[in-house]
Design a protein around this nucleic acid. Sequence first.
RNA 1: GGAGGGUUGGCCGAGUGGUUUAAGGCACCGGUCUUGAAAACCGGCAACAGGGCAACCUGUUCGUGAGUUCGAAUCUCACACCCUCCGCCA
Length: 425
Amino acid sequence: MLDIQLLRKDLPAVVAGLARRGYALDEAGFRTLEDERKSLQTRTEQLQAKRNALSKEVGARKSRGEDASSVLAEVAGIGDELKANEAALSALQGRLDHFLRTLPNIPRADVADGKSADDNVEVRRWGVPRAFDFPVRDHVDVGEGLSLLDFETAAKVSGARFSILRGHLARLHRAIAQFMLDVHTREHGYTEIYSPYMVSGECADGVSSLAKFKDDLFKIEGRDLYLIPTSEYSVTNFVRDVILEEKSLPLKFACHSPCFRSEAGSHGKDTRGMIRQHQFDKVELVQIVHPERSAEAHEELTANAETILKRLELPYRTMLLCTGDMGFASARTYDLEVWLPGQNAYREISSCSNYEAFQARRMQARFKGGDKGRTEPVHTINGSGLAVGRTLVAILENYQQADGSVVVPDALRPWMGGVERLARA
RNA sequence: GGAGGGUUGGCCGAGUGGUUUAAGGCACCGGUCUUGAAAACCGGCAACAGGGCAACCUGUUCGUGAGUUCGAAUCUCACACCCUCCGCCA
């Protein structure tokens, strides 16, 4: 949510900022709502003040044993108008709030303008894609060839966009998650978190816009609960309605969880394999930081995620998303794209975003500042560190051998109980 | 599923219709004292919204929502959540 003060003080700047990401703010609509709100609020508060003063007078007279009937008669006249004003004001503020919650975040100045992923900017590239001296297969052929990856049974059990891992491949999946968690908690200072896989609608609206994106989520029937599409949904909400001590910042959380996405808008996209599933695991990094440190923390968190790719020796590139390709809540986003030989392309494996105060305002997450002692919204940052399923895909494709086996990356061996290669039994 | 208890500021906690302008304590901030610190003492200290250049003023908020009333933390109703006991259960 944007700061409504900014809209009041400098609407043209907000309009211009949102236009950069292709969002047309209804300027006249906002002005109308805001003007109406102002007059209605002024009038309502005058009436309330009058009623409060008169009611106090009633009490004062009665305690002195005097007659209060003249005051009672006066205050009685206020009742209907006050009620009508209060109702109208509350309805109007509801509309204003809805309007405000529908607006996306304003991109930071150093984000390139653009319309689509084609306009994203490559900021760095690491590793060299391996040269294969045999026909490269994608992860589906590799996994199924080893009888360790099974989409047919998954389809029977749950339908499309699910997968089943067996044996050493399932173990590799677990090893990846544990490796990532251990690196982030031992080396990068994150606190390990286990948290709910379902959150309330209110919390969902705290990190994004529930009104806009509820079709992308799985909802529990008959309950105000949604399956998380990322543990960001539960973890970031730890600080909902909290006023933090300045010295307690930053908070750094690492959480491994499954993620559930309806993929409502992606029919026909990535239908083959594990790239786009209704359920996948992810190790999520979340930082709650002081506003002055957020740009720096965003770089740090992105580097933390990149560390995983480097340790796994997977070639990747880091993209700074353009204004048109960023998510609703983000002010600035890096995508990490891993090299997939099976697709002969770099594919997203992590998305690291700085939301600045956007989410914090939606969920009333604040800290009490030092000198001024004022409360202000914290900044929130998060990113995948990394998506476990896509990491598995990248390993199957990058570490495949001519004989159909897959070498386990050195970095994962401590978690593989001596297994150095996935091969046919 | 059954029965009971509870939800008050950053935290603890008093408060059953009108000097509550939410007592008191803790924490925090400033000061006095001290070589320094602690202790003691003095003072300050809720959030959110609106108005004002500002000192400041007004409003809302005591789990949420509705109601009664001139006036509600306090009374009524509904709901949510937490706790205890019983039953069932991984």
